[in-house]
Amino acid sequence: MIQLRNIQKSFGNQLVLKGIDLTVNKGEVVSILGPSGSGKTTLLRCINFLERPNEGEVMVDDFTVNSKQASKKEILTLRKKTAMVFQQYNLFKHKTVMENVMEGLLVVQKSSKETARKLAMEVLAKVGLTEKANAYPVQLSGGQQQRVGIARALALNPEVILLDEPTSALDPELVGEVLEVIKRIADEGITMIIVTHEVSFAKDVSDYIVFMDQGEIIEEGTPTVIFNYPKEERTKRFFKRINREAGILESNLSSVI
């Protein structure tokens, strides 16, 4: 179980997270939606202390880190329990696909080379990239790179995988393959927290939806409730705008056809 208690974060004198509480149960997929600048990416980065919260506690798997007195060692332990998938993939450029996936196993989990290799091949098979094992990131498409990013996170067998807008940097035609992989691992019961703009994907894959705006959680609940019966005005407006944009996109498409 992952629990965030009263997470606050400010940059300079601007408060970007105003005390967030959130509980994610084991095996759940939670999507965080909201307009840009709402603080959702910052919240995700606070979970593994890539951003250190000013206030609050992060608990992962009964291990609690308090933002005020977190030691380096505690932060390291927290990070070993989590893994992240980045918007810009952030694959280690000087390592092959295989080495990228093995890196955490070898260095952090101290697995033997053999075990690491075997595990790496398994997860690469899951994301459908076994034949690219010896390629360098630069030789891959964005979609392939992101699938490696997912494999790298998956290999560590973390308590939770944090996905930060995993498809935002991709060309539209490459979004599908990545979403498909995420969907597949979601079905395996891996706990995930996803920050995304892909509303229909979130609806499809999530057990729980969190809607954020201006550093606060405005509304949360199951997809059915949130998408069909949003209570808050801001949530309704957000979905209306998204739908309109999707509509425009569709009408554009049809006019092309």
Binding site: N48, K72, T82, F92, V107
Partner: peptide, 29 residues
């Protein structure tokens, strides 16, 4: 890139591992 450091931290590396295994090899190249 900053992202390389973040990725190293995200998989649980400490500062020394990050520097020696990720940043320095790329920087030297």
């Amino acid at each position: 890139e900053r992202g390389q450091t973040e990725a190293a931290y995200s998989i649980g590396m400490n500062e020394k591992q990050m520097l020696v295994r990720i940043i320095l090899p790329q920087a030297l190249a």
